[in-house]
Simulated assay, not measured.
Amino acid sequence: MVVVVEIGLGLTGFGIFFSFLGIIFFFDKGLLAMGNILFVSGVSLTIGLKSTMQFFMKRSNFKGTVSFGIGFLILILGWPILGMIVESYGFLVLFSGFWPTLSVFLQKIPVLGWFVQQPYIRSLFERYRGRRVPV
């Protein structure tokens, strides 16, 4: 079980890396498509197939799932910039519930924590949490 999770984390990391390379190489649709496939398969192996299906099929995540899927289809059809814009919107909607957890994690990293705790950056994270922080 631990090996499957480690492989899933590796695939997720490679998915992010290939997506980054695809953006760096002027929206190369092959690298972007490979990054998306690796990312989704890595998430599936990390949290399990049943949990993945429940996550993507939740009513509150439906708009993000559809946007992510349509963006991937647009990317495959040959419009990588438009596809990445639609996918990015879907990604933000899907994973918006994880921003508070991510902000707490980032604040505990030694050098990066100082940057994340700056008022402007902190207000961005707090906005996703649902409450406004005065700047």
Rank of each mutant, 00 (worst) to 15 (best):
F17N: 02
F68A: 11
V2P: 00
M84F: 06
F26D: 12
S51F: 13
W79H: 01
I85L: 04
V3Q: 06
F91P: 00
V4M: 06
L49W: 15
Y128C: 06
V86N: 01
G69A: 13
V135H: 09
G90Q: 05
I24Q: 04
F125W: 08
S19L: 14
V86H: 02
W99H: 04
I76Q: 00
S123R: 14
F72H: 04
M84V: 11
G10R: 07
L94M: 10
P110R: 07
R131F: 06
L9W: 07
I7P: 00
V111H: 02
R129F: 12
V133M: 03
F14Y: 11
G30L: 15
I85H: 00
L106M: 11
Y120G: 00
W79V: 03
S51G: 09
W114L: 04
P119M: 08
F20D: 03
L38M: 15
G71V: 11
L77A: 08
L73C: 02
G78I: 11
R127N: 10
P134W: 10
S96G: 07
V66Y: 04
L9A: 07
S96E: 13
F105N: 02
Y120P: 00
S44A: 14
P134L: 10
K50N: 13
Q117W: 04
F20N: 03
Y128Q: 10
A33N: 10
F20E: 04
R59C: 02
L73S: 03
F72R: 02
L124P: 05
P134C: 03
K29L: 09
G64P: 07
N36D: 12
L49P: 07
I37C: 10
G113E: 08
Y89C: 00
R122K: 12
L92M: 11
L106I: 14
T101L: 07
F27R: 06
I7D: 01
G30H: 15
F18E: 04
S41H: 14
E126M: 09
F39S: 11
F26T: 13
M84Y: 03
F115V: 15
I85V: 12
F95N: 01
I121F: 12
S41M: 15
E87M: 08
N61K: 05
S51L: 13
G13L: 12
E87V: 05
I24D: 02
N61Y: 09
I109Q: 09
L9T: 05
V93W: 03
I109E: 07
E126T: 10
K108V: 11
F105L: 09
S51A: 14
V4A: 07
G15S: 06
E87S: 05
L31I: 13
V43W: 13
P110H: 09
I37P: 08
F56P: 02
Q54C: 09
V2E: 04
L75A: 01
G10T: 15
F62N: 04
L9P: 00
